[in-house]
Design a protein around this nucleic acid. Sequence first.
DNA 1: TCTCTTGAGCTATTTACCTCA
DNA 2: AGTGAGGTAAATAGCTCAAGA
Length: 240
Amino acid sequence: MEYTYSEGAEAETYTSSSTTPSSGMRSKKKSNNTRRFSDDQIKSLETMFETESRLEPRKKLQLARDLGLQPRQVAIWFQNKRARWKSKQLERDYGILQSNYNSLASRFEALKKEKQTLLIQLQKLNHLMQKPLEAGQSRTQVEAANSMDSESENGGTMKCELEEKPSPSIERSEHAHGVLSDDDASIKVEHFGLEDEHGLLNFAEHADDSLTSPEDWSAFESNALLGQTSSDYQWWDFWS
DNA sequence: TCTCTTGAGCTATTTACCTCA
DNA sequence: AGTGAGGTAAATAGCTCAAGA
């Protein structure tokens, strides 16, 4: 293996050398024998680094012999390599975090819009429900409410939870209000109760604040997001 | 058993040099 | 030809840790 690196002094500090200039300036000046390692040497070093980023002393000596380098040079190369690798790894981690954040942000925006749509529907339904209570049953208005809600079947963020566990209050309110329907909207409204409307709305409003507040965002461990793509790490399933 | 010293190895940072646009 | 940026080998400071007296 051809290599033009001069033997001997290259791994030593120049400050201790007899060739150190006598001027007061601290001289670490490297002489012309400072050369880059050859491609073959780099290749061998890289190969070894892939298997183990820290060399055992015995392997270091062996590798140094094989490459015609000083053990010290091999050690320094591994030190520098670890530093470069760490730097690159930081860049990769940053990219992953950025990607995960972008996915989360777009998902959050979509949920925000969905929530807004549902709140509007809820308000309309509440408005329609109030009138039959005041002026007696109006079959046509209830039906109108039903049909309106059925237009937005794709919403249903809360639907699943509520359908899974029918509350006794639903039964009671069905009789009380005479809304005998399995309609989603009526279940939602009845489940929360009209008197609870403000509570629900307040909850929904504060959901925005809490999600966007720095305190809660910072609660996410960045490490937990690393090493996983946004596609296979759907921790936001919590919201669906 | 505890303490101190010493040497090796590590990371982080800096320096000197080289290459290239 | 001059120059600045970036890469790389090596030096340095400061730290940890294990071994041995």
